[in-house]
Simulated assay, not measured.
Amino acid sequence: MILALLAVGAIGGFLSGMFGVGGGIVMVPLLLWLARMDQRQAAATSLVAIVPTAIVGSILYGVGGQVDWVAALLIGAGTIVGAPIGAWLLRTLPLAWLRWLFIVGLAAAAVYLIFETPERGGSLDLSVGVVVALVGLGLVMGLAAGMFGIGGGIIAVPVLIALFGMGDLLAKGTSLLAMIPASIAGTIPNLRAGLVRLRDGLVVGLAAVLASSGGVAMAFLVPPALASVLFGLLLVFVVAQLSVRAVRLQAREKREREGDGPGEGSE
């Protein structure tokens, strides 16, 4: 189990550094498969590991001059509000809903990343409307962090590139910094609710931190178009695997309900 957790963290950390995401986008499915967690445990445990991963990743991008500190602060303010709401939804929504919402979100991100080529070098011009939009983006990131155990970077990076005109590296660095408060704000209520497998989360986080530097280095080397397509294809693979798993789980849950309930076949 320790080796499996280290592998989950290494993969998630490398992708976190390379693509500016928390790594939960991959760590959650891997925790489902390798650590036999349910969706709630996987999401909550992944979120713990994202905290140190995002801190280290944002520092590395910052050293390279690829963090917009003001934008990250505004987005982070929104995440603080959204993350506890997302954590509450994680505890209350049916697991089937969580599975399919997660899959749909991944599919939408994959389509964008495959068909849109980001630029390198764009910057952000602040205005009142942009400030409000950045806080709103943070709110959505916080909801995603609390509900799905992801840092929200899979949402922030495409949005910062497509709607705010940021270059791809700047979007990734800013995303990592902004997701730190979201991850912390989402983890606190999850800990109180007993959803987090804390030791497992720390093991995953340690491996992720060690691997994130390699991912950041790769981000600066790989052309933005290639990096975008590679990540999009990875998400397509994850969506396919999760969809198969979700269908199987729904079928099994339906059989269990029909077997346990009175008057089976009455419908």
Rank of each mutant, 00 (worst) to 15 (best):
A83Q: 13
V140Y: 07
Q39C: 07
Q250E: 15
A246V: 03
A145E: 08
L90T: 02
I11M: 12
S58P: 12
I184E: 00
A42N: 05
V28H: 00
G24Y: 03
Q66P: 06
T53W: 03
F231C: 08
L198V: 10
W97I: 13
G263H: 09
M147P: 04
I11H: 02
A207Q: 00
L210N: 08
G205Q: 03
V48P: 11
M218N: 03
L226H: 05
Y61M: 11
A83H: 10
G201T: 09
A211I: 03
L176Q: 09
A54F: 01
Q41S: 12
T174A: 11
A83P: 11
L113F: 14
F14L: 01
G82W: 11
G86Y: 10
R120M: 13
L198C: 00
I59C: 04
G265K: 02
V51L: 06
V209C: 10
V56C: 06
Q250C: 02
V56S: 06
T79F: 02
V111A: 04
Y61A: 01
L177V: 07
I50Y: 10
L249V: 14
P189V: 04
A227H: 06
A182D: 05
A96S: 15
M18P: 01
A133Q: 03
G64P: 04
E256K: 12
S58R: 15
G82Q: 02
Q41E: 15
V196Q: 11
L5S: 08
G263T: 02
G142E: 10
A156F: 13
A171N: 09
L89P: 00
M166W: 00
G9R: 12
V8R: 08
L113Y: 09
L34K: 09
G165H: 05
A108F: 14
R197D: 05
I55Y: 06
V203S: 02
S127W: 01
G23C: 05
V132P: 14
D168T: 01
W88N: 10
P181W: 02
V130G: 02
Q41N: 13
V131H: 06
D260N: 14
L98T: 05
R40A: 06
I80A: 04
A162Q: 05
V216A: 12
L226W: 01
K172A: 14
L15G: 01
A44I: 09
F115M: 10
V135G: 08
V247T: 08
L60V: 10
S127T: 06
L106Y: 15
S127G: 13
L191K: 00
L233N: 10
F115H: 05
I154M: 15
L93Y: 04
V222T: 10
S123Q: 14
A7P: 03
I114H: 01
A49L: 03
A144G: 08
V216H: 04
A109W: 11
